[in-house]
Design a protein around this nucleic acid. Structure first.
Length: 936
RNA sequence: GGGCCCUUAGCUCAGGGGUUCAGAGCGCUCGCCUCACACGCGAGAGGUCGUUGGUUCAAAUCCAACAGGGCCCACCA
């Protein structure tokens, strides 16, 4: 099946006219919407299967973690999307067929709750209206609000191929989910069983262990007396003291347990005790699980309401009683307490025990309480029939692919967390007692009366097997669809050669066997560690089981965004930072760049909104940088550039600063490419920032910047200078584009005339030209930088106005002083301009003028005559201090060199470096001392 | 109870055997509206890299213990 044809390409929007010199800072708003529309309309985000299947391009694929349909964009999305878009744009530029698959998750419980709450506000009740009507409301809600977050993501600049966008409950996806259930049943990996589950009485559904948070709560530990009875069931004098935090479950006690080696209770093992609530007679059993030193050393066994007890009960074949209803009230088995809510029942039972003389002791106690991460309700362990996935076989393969490196975690330490979870995996309860979700594809026969006929076997089938059968009421866990994301989005199972239902489902033209072949497995998954178990691990299991391949090669785990105090951002705390507000305030590029800088190796980010100022300032810096030489680019009436500045000089014929800046750009390119390749996002951001700000702007632009002519007008740069400026700047724009797509695209179009498809987004990622590298130039230029720095230092120290020209003598030292002096002579203009010097003498070992300040840099000296301005005492003091520091340094170097072990064992290069340091330091000290002596 | 992470400048954090590794941003001090940018420019101050041991010619960097802070797992009722 062919991809939909690309939409006709629009003309490139005219770049906005360059602002006049007096214009204010960069204003991102108009720029961002303009370019997003251009990219999207122009099909620049598109990934086509043909390019891959024909072998023309390698695929690079990222499946976006589908945000919840109830979601609004938050900082976590902004961070993760920044990383994903960065990688996608980088790879697209590097010539990959880059596909970022977006979508939405139906988010079972969350969505059902949101809609239910909304209906309640309108006076409507979910249960009263019934399943079908309620689901209509949910779908309406989804239509109305469900895509908001994807629209918000466009503001960030996300370059997803929206044609691939999927919803976990769209037709094809639902089909895939049900298909998966059926296959797992066939494979013997799904079973139904009645076990103790985590029951959420609020939402009245089962949830998985991963959805339960254990929190410490202050509670009580009650010690209760259980009388031992004789053979007739009559109380004896003896009794067992039992400590419990959950007296409301006493009516469900079906045994009492002690440790088999506990001396105190040997004689009681096998006897019976009377449960002081309900007076049930239960056996005393012995089990290793009992802690002798806890409480009085005896445990009440309540297999129907406690996980530990369930295990103990199983070992000893103890009766299981369930005394609770699904809404958290006690049932008839609780006798007098039937109908009471569980917390009320707890109070009442304690009061009654106390009144009847069974309560021995009440202590304050910190109880680990299981809480539903969804509803925050206290979880009740409850006996309930549910569907489970047998996880051990799936986990085994998922472990293997991480252990053998088929899947790599970044940073690597998350692989340990992953292993730990998989090695101790438990079966996954996948049924949920909800209405919003994928209906379980299990069908039951019915009786004449329309009831489910338990006497006949159920049938597992995607479609209704025969008329009259009814489908299981329950739906599947949300994650039971999410775990198929990387392949179900592409049309699986249609790609398996089966006559798939997806291939001809018109709303998803991109899902096809070809797409699956071309774009699966994905390349990298970017996600937070909060869903490592929920999603990341399960996707790997599903990928291996259903497609026999890993769903992605790399997993990039980001840190989580916290507030300035390190707390999770949450609605209830009101400490959230809205990314859209930040984009309004600072611009999307600024937000992205800031997040990229902060995104260091999986550490959590304590985010202060003021940090976005840094990104904004940088965006502004880049914007203004282009104006320096941008003035020299001619434009037509629409503001489009007409000057096509191209370099004609060979690299060797460039000026020193040009060879320097081109070399630096090459180094930067190499470094940024390497950092991004290793997922060191912040390092890459920092590197390109440093180049643009410190090298390109502070030195290069300062030197080429046009001066005003005689008439006071700003002059244009000559064509050759302009060409290098434009080309270098274009190189920086390419490097910056993945970080700051809008700004860079805007500036890109201002540099020279371009055709409609020559957008920056579609440009090649730069590779440095090895012949355009000049380490000599770098070295000489750094000497210039030092000398300029020295003059500026003198200026600042003596309070000489920056505008006042100075006379300066540079005494060049070092091994090749004459040659260095000649080289510096060639670029004397640099020093004159940057240090504002109007009388510059450069010579090897030039004499020191009278009454001048002296600064030693490297092996050179800079003399600035400042008659009458020098405080001799202060100058002496300063020199002495400097000499002392230098001597200390020299001493440490000499100590090192005197060390036999060091000289013989350290690499030659390291030793050589130390020798060089020694020689330089010695020379510098000599120079400093001469200066000091000169002061008298 | 097990495991992981963090502790570096006033603040937020990079760096992860060898003086380009003692750094960045913010803040602070001093001087500048220098004709791209005050969302700016120039010059500075400010850390014995949590503590103690060890490995090494060499430790902020590797190892161990300890002290703080945080996170994740876990059935002491």
């Amino acid at each position: 099946m062919a991809d939909t044809p690309r939409p006709p390409l629009p003309e490139a929007p005219a770049a906005a006219p360059l602002p006049e010199a007096a214009d204010g800072p960069y204003d991102p708003t108009a720029v961002e919407t303009k370019w997003y529309r251009y990219w999207e309309d122009g099909g620049f985000f598109h990934a086509d299967t043909e390019a891959v299947t024909s072998g023309e391009k390698e695929p690079f694929v990222i499946p976006m973690p589908p945000p919840n349909v109830t979601g609004r964009l938050h900082m976590g999305h902004a961070l993760q999307d920044t990383v994903q878009d960065l990688l996608i744009r980088l790879k697209r530029m590097q010539g990959f067929e880059a596909l970022w698959i977006p979508g939405i998750d139906h988010a079972g419980i969350a969505t059902q709750n949101v809609v239910e709450r909304k209906l309640r506000e309108q006076g409507l009740d979910r249960k009263a209206m019934g399943r079908e009507a309620f689901l209509t409301h949910v779908w309406d809600w989804r239509e109305e609000y469900g895509d908001i977050i994807l629209k918000q993501k466009r503001r960030l600049g996300d370059s997803c191929d929206w044609r691939y966008s999927r919803f976990t409950m769209d037709e094809g996806f639902s089909r895939a989910v049900q298909e998966v259930f059926v296959r797992l049943v066939e494979d013997g990996l799904v079973y139904k069983g009645e076990y103790l589950v985590n029951w959420d009485p609020e939402n009245q559904t089962v949830i998985s262990n991963e959805e339960v948070d254990n929190v410490e709560r202050s509670g009580s530990l009650w010690t209760v007396r259980y009388p031992v009875v004789d053979a007739d069931g009559t109380d004896t004098e003896a009794a067992l003291m039992i400590a419990t935090t959950r007296p409301e479950t006493i009516p469900a006690d079906t045994a009492v347990a002690v440790h088999p080696e506990d001396e105190r209770f040997q004689h009681l093992i096998g006897q019976r005790v009377r449960v002081p609530v309900g007076n049930r007679l239960v056996p005393v059993i012995a089990d290793e699980a009992i802690q002798m030193d806890f409480g009085a050393g005896a445990l009440k066994v309540t297999p129907g309401h406690s996980e530990v007890d369930w295990e103990i009960g199983k070992r000893h074949d103890i009766e299981v009683l369930s005394i609770m209803n699904l809404d958290g009230t006690l049932n008839d088995l609780a006798g007098a307490y039937a109908g009471m809510e569980r917390t009320a029942a707890k109070k009442q039972i304690v009061a009654d025990l106390d009144a009847d003389g069974y309560l021995v002791k009440t202590e304050d106690y910190t109880v680990m309480t299981p809480i539903s991460s969804r509803s925050k309700a206290v979880i009740e362990p409850l006996l309930s029939p549910q569907w489970y996935v047998r996880m051990a076989p799936l986990a085994e393969r998922a472990l293997a692919v991480v252990n053998d490196g088929t899947v790599t975690f970044h940073p690597a330490r998350w692989a340990n967390e992953y292993r730990r979870w998989l090695e101790d995996i438990r079966d996954w309860p996948i049924s949920r007692q909800l209405w919003w979700g994928h209906r379980i594809p299990v069908w039951y026969h019915t009786t004449e009366a329309g009831e489910i006929d338990d006497s006949r076997d159920f049938v597992v089938s995607v479609d209704q097997p025969e008329a009259g059968m009814v489908q299981d009421e329950d739906v599947l866990d949300t994650w039971f669809s999410s775990w198929l994301w990387p392949f179900a989005t592409l049309g699986w199972p249609a790609g398996e050669g089966a006559e798939g239902p997806v291939a001809d489902t018109s709303p998803f033209p991109m899902a096809s066997p070809e797409a699956l072949r071309a774009f699966y497995p994905a390349s990298v998954l970017v996600s937070g560690y909060d869903i490592l178990f929920f999603w990341i691990a399960r996707m790997i299991m599903a990928g291996l089981h259903f497609t026999d391949r890993v769903p992605y090669r790399d997993v990039f785990i980001t840190g989580m965004i916290k507030d300035t105090q390190g707390r999770w951002m949450s609605k209830s705390l009101g400490n959230g930072i809205d990314p859209l507000d930040m984009i309004e305030q600072y611009g999307a590029d600024a937000v992205r760049f800031t997040l990229a800088v902060l995104c260091a190796q999986g550490q959590d980010i304590k985010l202060d909104p003021a940090k976005f100022e840094g990104g904004r300032n940088f965006a502004n810096k880049v914007w203004n940088a282009s104006r320096v030489f941008g003035r020299s680019i001619e434009t037509d009436r629409d503001g489009r550039p007409t000057t096509d500045a191209r370099r004609t000089r060979a690299f060797a014929d460039l000026s020193l600063v040009e060879r320097w800046v081109v070399t630096r750009l090459g180094e930067t390119t190499e470094s940024v490419t390497a950092s991004l390749g290793a997922y060191r996002i912040s390092e890459a951001a920092q590197t390109v920032y440093d180049f643009v700000w410190n090298d390109f702007c502070d030195w290069y632009l300062e030197l080429i910047k046009p001066a005003r002519g005689e008439d006071g007008e700003i002059q244009n740069l000559d064509a050759e200078t302009l060409a290098v400026a434009v080309e270098t700047f274009e190189g920086a724009l390419r490097l910056l584009h993945p970080f700051m797509p809008f700004l860079t695209e805007e500036l890109w179009w201002k540099q020279r005339p371009r055709g409609p498809r020559e957008a920056l987004i579609a440009c090649d990622w730069p590779t440095p030209d090895p012949t355009e590298r000049d380490t000599e130039a770098v070295h000489l230029f750094s000497t210039v930088q030092s000398l300029v720095g020295a003059v500026r230092q003198v200026r600042a120290q003596y309070g000489v106005a920056p505008s006042k020209p100075l006379a300066v003598t540079v005494s060049v030292g070092g091994d090749h002083a004459e040659a260095t002096a000649r080289a510096l002579e060639d670029v004397r203009g640099y020093i004159e301009r940057l240090a504002r010097v109007d009388d510059l003498i450069i010579a090897a070992d030039a004499p020191k003028p009278d009454a001048s300040a002296a600064v030693v840099v490297d092996r050179h000296q800079v003399f600035v005559p400042l008659a009458g301005m020098i405080d001799l005492d202060a100058e002496r003091e300063r020199l002495r201090g400097e000499i002392e520091a230098k001597r200390g340094f020299l001493a440490s170097v000499e100590r090192k060199l005197a060390n036999e072990n060091f000289v013989s064992r350290a690499p030659e290069a390291v030793v050589g470096k130390e020798r060089q340091k020694r020689d330089d330091a010695t020379a510098e000290i000599a120079a400093l001392e001469a200066n000091l002596a000169d002061l008298g």
